[in-house]
């Protein structure tokens, strides 16, 4: 589920960062930034440096973002998926929101156990002639070893919070974090092995053909051996199939089951 409502996304983002929403209608969103958010987004380190130096309280700026393209000529910044501002916000999110520990909210007056889950959101990139990405969200219960795919969709339905609810207690994991992560990795590995990977075959074919072409070009020109090596390296760099895995974020979730 990608971002579908940009205005809502931005509102949530700023509210989560404890910024006050000054105005929000017809796709125009006016926000009073906090000091922390001003420093993160407004790119004026000298101001904050100077203010700190003279021992004063700084004045965070306000920010008007326009998500409605029909209003883009009004005062403020038109923000859309390509705009540098949204890229900045997305980068800020990706950089800061990488690790978590959360608890399922439980209303009960009886002792309730919460089980630890290791949750990993992993981006897989397949790069050959072209490139594509795939997101995989996996959860591993660290007591009984159950594994669950599309974990984020599941978590979306649960009430989650940063503190443990009353009458709840956590069960200690039996599977250690490192070995839990290894189990997830091996599931990913067999997932990769079970694909046919036409993209990689095509890339390898292209790679071989181009190397042959280059070798033909340099036939009998021994003095240019180095140049040929360079060009072959470039071809490999461009075509050699690579799958890279990057964890976008993850953490420990304590859930009732």
């Amino acid at each position: 589920m990608a971002i579908t409502n940009l205005n809502q996304f931005l509102e949530d983002y700023f509210v989560s960062h404890r910024c006050q929403i000054l105005e929000n209608k017809d796709g125009i969103l006016k926000i009073q930034l906090t000091e922390e958010m001003d420093q993160a987004l407004m790119n004026r380190p000298f101001y904050w440096h100077y203010i700190k130096k003279i021992g004063q309280q700084g004045q965070p700026m306000d920010l008007t973002l326009i998500t409605n393209p029909n209003k883009k000529n009004e005062k403020g910044e038109w923000i859309h998926f390509g705009s540098p501002r949204l890229q900045q916000i997305i980068n800020h999110l990706k950089e800061k929101e990488k690790y978590t520990k959360l608890f399922q909210k439980v209303v009960s007056n009886q002792n309730t156990p919460l089980f630890p889950w290791l949750v990993v959101n992993l981006k897989m990139s397949y790069k050959g002639k072209q490139k594509k990405d795939e997101m995989i969200s996996i959860g591993l219960q660290l007591v009984n070893g159950n594994m669950r795919l599309e974990m984020m969709d599941h978590l979306q339905k649960l009430p989650l919070q940063m503190a443990i609810s009353d009458y709840c207690y956590t069960i200690s994991p039996i599977i250690k974090l490192q070995s839990g992560f290894k189990r997830i990795e091996s599931v990913i590995s067999s997932y990769i092995e079970n694909q046919t990977h036409e993209w990689a075959l095509e890339s390898l074919q292209e790679l071989e053909e181009e190397i042959k072409t280059v070798q033909h070009f340099y036939e009998g020109r021994t003095e240019e051996l180095e140049q040929m090596e360079k060009e072959i390296e470039e071809i490999k760099e461009r075509y050699h199939p690579v799958i890279s895995q990057e964890v976008i974020n993850g953490g420990i979730f304590y859930l009732t089951e």
Binding site: S16, F81, I89, I90, N121, D133, I248, G251
Partner: peptide
């Protein structure tokens, strides 16, 4: 023991990534 992301921001970062990835070769 921290710092941890709140659920809202954690899930927003995930959705932001889903928005920016390229699911197709073509």
């Amino acid at each position: 023991d921290g710092p941890y992301s709140s659920w809202e921001l954690f899930s927003m970062a995930y959705h932001a990534e889903l928005t920016t990835i390229t699911p197709e070769f073509k």
